[in-house]
Amino acid sequence: MREDNELGAFLKARRGRVRPEDVGLTTSGRRRVPGLRREELARLAGVSARYLTRLEQGEDHNPSAQVLSALSSALRLDADEAAHLYALAAPRPRPAGEENASDAVQRLLNTWEHVPAYVRDRRFDVLAANKTAMALSGLYTPGQNLVRGIFRDPAVRALFPDWTQVAAHTAAALRAEGDVRDPRTAELIESMLTDDEFHGMWKTYDVQPVRDEIKRFVHPVVGPLTLRRQALTIAAAPDQTIIVYQADPGTPSEDALARLL
């Protein structure tokens, strides 16, 4: 398999996660590898085993929408995983977006002085932040990369009591939102693969875009905080995302956030 064949690598990884009995196949004897055999997936998707071999080995890069739909169904991909499969099969990578946040967006962040807020791109570079976000963590300082910080900065690791979950979600979000064919994103991933923990999480091929969720912090000054994260897309710059953290009213986290300010 070619090293740059992300489509084939993704198909092979997801094939290994589907148990034959989950898709109505009966098996006998010991299987050398977990999941579906290539011939089994080909039969379920209604394509030839030879064609699936070409896809997995990077000899064919342009499967039809019908084939992608059949593979998604056979592999039991969820909506995020299916979207990632279609993106990998696109003939061209998505064009790179703006590398800076606009002055208007920075002014907006500054008006939200009671909540941490920052802007990052789909490579997870921080482009802009307000003072509250930077007080929450140096990770949210413009110029920082969230992936590098989460995996390689001991202070950031201490910030998250659920670090393993946060790190796994970060790798899955980078796979979902980034484009491995973008040179700068590919450079980031290549540099991070020397980290054993990132390497292990990246090679699971999990796909999970950033969504609203509850996140826990342990700040070195104000202590524990439980904050509600919201992700907002900027209409004028769809490759950029505003991340805002809010504490629920009347909670100890609201008091801690006020002390942080």
Results as ranks from 00 to 15, higher is better:
Leu7Lys: 07
Leu11Ser: 01
Lys12Phe: 00
Ala13Gln: 00
Val18Gly: 00
Arg30His: 12
Arg32Lys: 13
Glu40Pro: 14
Ala42Arg: 09
Ala42Tyr: 09
Arg43Asn: 12
Thr53Gly: 08
Glu59Ile: 11
Asp60Cys: 10
Ala65Asp: 14
Leu68Tyr: 02
Ser72Thr: 06
Ser73His: 14
Ala74Val: 10
Ala74Lys: 04
Arg107Asp: 08
Leu108Ala: 11
Leu108Met: 15
Asn110Leu: 07
Thr111Cys: 04
Trp112Gly: 06
Trp112Val: 02
Val119Thr: 04
Asp121Ile: 07
Arg122His: 12
Arg122Ile: 04
Arg123Leu: 10
Asp125Ala: 05
Leu127Ala: 02
Ala129Met: 01
Ala129Tyr: 02
Lys131Ser: 15
Thr132Lys: 13
Leu136Ala: 04
Leu139Asp: 01
Thr141Phe: 01
Pro142Met: 00
Asn145Trp: 07
Leu146Ser: 09
Arg157Val: 14
Ala167Gln: 01
Thr170Trp: 03
Ala173Trp: 04
Leu174Ile: 12
Ala176Asn: 09
Asp179Ser: 11
Glu190Ala: 15
Thr194Glu: 14
Asp195Ile: 11
His219Thr: 13
His219Lys: 12
Val221Asn: 10
Val222Asp: 00
Leu225Asn: 05
Leu232Ser: 07
Ile234Arg: 02
Gln246Cys: 08
Gly250Ser: 03
Ala256Asp: 00
Arg259Gly: 08
